[in-house]
Simulated assay, not measured.
Amino acid sequence: PHALTNSEIVGFCQLHKDDRSRLLSPDESGTKVIKLTDQVVVKFGRSVRLQEASAQDLAFKNTDCEVLRIPKVYRFFSQQESKWDSVGYLVMEKIDGVNLEQLGDWDKAEIVSRVTTVLNALHSIPGTCPGPISGGEAYGYLYAQKSSGTEFSTINDLESYLNERLAFFERKISLGGQHLCLCHMDVAPRNFIMDVYGRLCLLDWATAGFYPRYFELWSLEFADTCSSHQFGPVLLQSLKATAAETMEIENLNLVYRFNMRCRTKAYDEQTEEIMAAIGKTSKDESYS
């Protein structure tokens, strides 16, 4: 991939974006993954950002490949399409294997145990500044599928962001003394590949960043209420949230509720069902 210029990579992607012999992503996906060579792929789209490349590169350099494989990042660049839009291009290692969602065994005890080990390894990677590794606005479920709208330069910035929303519910959170760690924030069977040697590989680092560990637990709980294709409560139980973390997960539920209200200005029925499920889960389940 180093021999190709950015322009040549863009041209290749545009030429083969509908070529089923090279396309590795679903047809309906707005973000495309195309095979550049037998060893290299390109992920590109408007939602492919430097934050993803930086998080993936950090994880690659700080994890044991026998515990977790991370595709090596070769290059990231973006190209302006219009005054408002740009497309990001992430050139990375191609991992051959089987997607866990397709494998269908993701909820077995052995897989859950291995995913727990993977997450514990990621959560051992410390950070000092919250949010995306490379800075900028944060993205993900918590922000109602949009961005945070602001950059978190310090942990106080993140605390202020959360408390501005929690004030609506007469709640407050304190991040003083909180340990920040690398959180993937979209851990799901669809984002794992089991390679030809039986090792787990974790993909899609678009929403990853440095957060308190319970942010990861919240994202797992939230995703489980939205889809049956998740690891489910058994993974949360395996990760053993503390009583304090369980309380903070409830606070993050309220932050999401506020962000969703601001986005839609009125709940639709699906949102109400999701929030009802989250509220029931956070109150009825114990992860300790």
Results as ranks from 00 to 15, higher is better:
177 G>F: 14
175 L>D: 09
169 F>G: 02
169 F>V: 06
161 Y>T: 05
149 G>F: 00
165 R>M: 12
180 L>A: 11
147 S>A: 13
187 V>E: 13
166 L>Y: 00
146 K>F: 05
159 E>M: 13
143 Y>K: 06
168 F>W: 12
184 H>G: 06
174 S>I: 12
170 E>F: 00
148 S>Q: 12
151 E>M: 09
178 Q>T: 12
171 R>G: 10
164 E>W: 04
182 L>W: 07
184 H>P: 09
147 S>G: 01
149 G>K: 10
166 L>Q: 14
163 N>W: 08
185 M>F: 05
174 S>T: 09
189 P>S: 14
143 Y>R: 06
156 N>W: 07
182 L>C: 04
160 S>Y: 13
148 S>T: 05
157 D>S: 11
148 S>L: 00
148 S>I: 03
153 S>V: 14
166 L>H: 04
159 E>K: 13
182 L>F: 13
175 L>S: 08
159 E>Y: 12
188 A>K: 03
180 L>P: 12
159 E>F: 07
151 E>F: 11
179 H>P: 06
156 N>R: 05
154 T>K: 07
167 A>E: 05
175 L>Q: 01
152 F>T: 10
160 S>P: 03
147 S>T: 04
170 E>L: 03
176 G>Y: 00
188 A>Y: 11
161 Y>D: 09
175 L>G: 00
184 H>L: 07
153 S>E: 14
